[in-house]
Design a protein around this nucleic acid. Structure first.
Lengths: 189, 189
DNA sequence: GTCTATACAGTGATAGAC
DNA sequence: GTCTATCACTGTATAGAC
């Protein structure tokens, strides 16, 4: 009889996948226990606040990952390199479209109201960080804002349609087109 | 004491709004009865198959609306006029971003598996209908497919981010940019 | 075609043993 | 830090009166 002992940092990725697959309301405690192999007791040990706390911590965790791996590089590093880096990270993170964006998905249903602030901040910072990088390549603020909005929305749309069609190649093509278009702006400068 | 008597065609739009706001799992029968002012008894009279049947009929209804108002015009009418018409209808239908796309939202969670076929067909037909119209303006098949994928994904992404930011103007800007970009293709021909 | 009453499974959450 | 047992409540669905 094996007994696995976890700490919270092990648990979060496990629970995250369940919410990603089933959504906030769809991820019932029994579904979560079944898929994580953790009992309700253990779950409430880590998250005394229940589902709401789980998701709050999951979203904070995802947000932090994007800050570290995408937003801050865009804000601070050499902009063209940071943009290239963003495309690689985005493709890897979303597993070529097989993984959805939890913050985007939660924006679409009643869950949004609960996690309003994190969701808004995440998208605002992504758009602003990308715009900042573009401005540093010499693109005008107005153009940079426009193309950043278009790019971030394009990624989300790619995830939606790719999943709707059940076709990973759709997401790949979308990323390639967006990256191509973005580069036509910053290569000019 | 007033008593309102409905037929199914009256009920579907009412129920649709509830699923749009709350998602499949979030829209419990008690939430639906509260918001539509119809009792469970009445609901099961119209939809003996329960929630699953409700959503199946809702999605079929939405799909049919898009076929009549957007897809068939794109496939049959003068292409540039049909594309202009599409932009107006899309903006009106999604109420400038305040209304989400149910088929897109359902693609993002566990609901997708239940309504797999309708969801896939809807997006495939939209992309193909738009591509067909573009080809008829003289754009090459390859370019038309590309720009159609980009446009449909862009609309979905606009809805996601607009709602995430809680900012209708984001959706409006997204539509304007996509329409502008699309026109640069078919105006050339 | 409307409704209320009811069944009973599944829900989030807690207590307490190990 | 793990678990099972149990709680009150909400979930979907049905029956039957009007």
């Amino acid at each position: 009889m094996t007994r696995t002992v976890f700490e919270k940092s092990d648990v979060i990725p496990l629970v995250t996948e369940v919410f990603r697959e089933l959504g906030y309301e769809g991820a019932s405690l029994s579904k979560i226990t079944a898929r994580t192999r953790l009992s309700k007791g253990s779950l409430y040990y880590f998250f005394p606040g229940g589902k709401e706390q789980m998701v709050a911590e999951i979203l904070a965790h995802i947000d932090q990952w994007f800050i570290n791996n995408i937003f801050e590089p865009l804000e601070k590093n050499e902009p063209r390199a940071a943009i290239d880096h963003m495309w690689r990270e985005v493709d890897a993170y979303f597993q070529s479209g097989q993984r959805i964006c939890l913050l985007g998905a939660f924006a679409m249903d009643g869950t949004r109201d609960r996690f309003d602030t994190v969701i808004r901040q995440y998208f605002m910072r992504w758009i602003e960080a990308l715009s900042t990088a573009l401005v540093r390549t010499g693109v005008s603020k107005e153009t940079a804002d426009q193309i950043s909005e278009e790019t971030v929305a394009g990624i989300q749309g790619g995830l939606v349609v790719s999943r709707a069609l059940n076709d990973d190649s759709f997401f790949e093509r979308t990323l390639a087109r967006l990256a191509q278009r973005l580069s036509t702006y910053h290569y000019l400068n």
